[in-house]
């Protein structure tokens, strides 16, 4: 027995990126129903407090996702050591953010609930994570036997607004880069319908996708499912979605489609046949539709 030193590895440190959906239209619609924004905030702040409570090395960064912009609203590493001002700091920044988001918006009112800029906040989260990886001492180095801490980031999306198909490409790119840097994306759906984007995000990156049934117990969902650090997840059974919507959006009209055409060069997706690819410029051959007696024969590429 020579290990007189205290425990060296901290398996359960979690660095958490929380993406808050601050789409005003969604929240004013939700006001009437189950969860008001203020209730939502108390659940979230309590969750952040509890994450920071369970390990002094835990770090939380909050990014607000508006409809016109997104921004960092809280970073526990930068906020100083005064724990009881956490909520104040976060709320103050949030108000500033909402004002900014409103100013940036155009005057014309959006028809229905617009989607919020999920792609933007995902990218910001990933940028932040990359910056920490590259600069800090907390770079994950599983191979090194130096006593560096193994620290892994995770992203939690608290999302309510519907998917914006026009963000498809950007979101998918973000998802793949998250997958590459081994950052799981957890999603907790607050709205009424499922999000195909987040389903895919969680599926691809190995995160948890959950749509709580009872929104007034949000904290319970957060603490039971999403608070588990990546180390513990090896030992826990976490909720699994029944199915994942793998449908893609076409690049030309940003529609969500079941079947479509795919550029054989760059894999761009189109809902109609084009003469050439708008992404990479490749010229396509003639589709085999010149059959004598057939009118509308399409050779479809079924992609599932």
């Amino acid at each position: 027995m020579t290990s007189v030193t205290p425990k060296l590895s901290t398996d359960d440190v979690s660095l958490l990126m929380v993406l808050l959906d601050t789409n005003p239209f969604f929240w004013s619609a939700a006001n009437a129903t189950s969860l008001s924004f203020s209730k939502f905030l108390s659940h979230v702040v309590a969750f952040l407090n509890s994450v920071l409570l369970i390990n002094q090395l835990n770090q939380v960064v909050v990014i607000a996702t508006g409809i016109n912009t997104c921004d960092y609203v809280y970073d526990s590493a930068a906020a100083g050591a005064v724990p009881n001002q956490r909520a104040e700091i976060l709320l103050q920044k949030l108000v500033e953010f909402v004002v900014k988001d409103e100013q940036l918006g155009k005057e014309d009112s959006v028809n229905g609930i617009g989607s919020s800029l999920l792609s933007g906040s995902l990218s910001m989260a990933l940028c932040y994570i990359q910056r920490v990886f590259r600069s800090g001492p907390l770079h994950p180095q599983p191979r090194s036997n130096l006593m560096k801490l193994l620290v892994w980031w995770q992203i939690l999306c608290l999302h309510g607004s519907p998917d914006g198909p026009e963000q498809y490409v950007a979101i998918m790119n973000a998802i793949f880069s998250a997958q590459r840097s081994m950052v799981p994306i957890d999603s907790c759906l607050l709205g009424a319908q499922h999000s195909a984007f987040l389903q895919q995000a969680s599926y691809i990156t190995g995160g948890v996708y959950l749509k709580p049934q009872q929104l007034d117990g949000l904290f319970q969902y957060l603490s039971t499912v999403f608070a588990s650090d990546l180390y513990s997840r090896n030992f826990l059974q976490l909720p699994k979605p029944v199915g994942v919507d793998f449908r893609a959006s076409c690049f030309c009209h940003k529609n969500t489609i079941d079947m479509g055409y795919i550029c054989s060069v760059c894999l761009s997706i189109f809902c109609k046949h084009h003469k050439n690819c708008s992404t990479c410029g490749s010229v396509f051959g003639q589709a085999q539709s010149n059959a004598p007696s057939t009118s509308n024969q399409k050779r479809e590429t079924p992609e599932t």
């Binding site: 005003p24 239209f25 929240w27 004013s28 203020s38 905030l41 709320l91 909402v98």
Partner: peptide
């Protein structure tokens, strides 16, 4: 209106 109510909610918590 939507932004207004959002701000209201935040200050409520505050």
């Amino acid at each position: 209106e939507a932004y207004g109510s959002l701000r209201e909610r935040i200050s409520e918590v505050k």
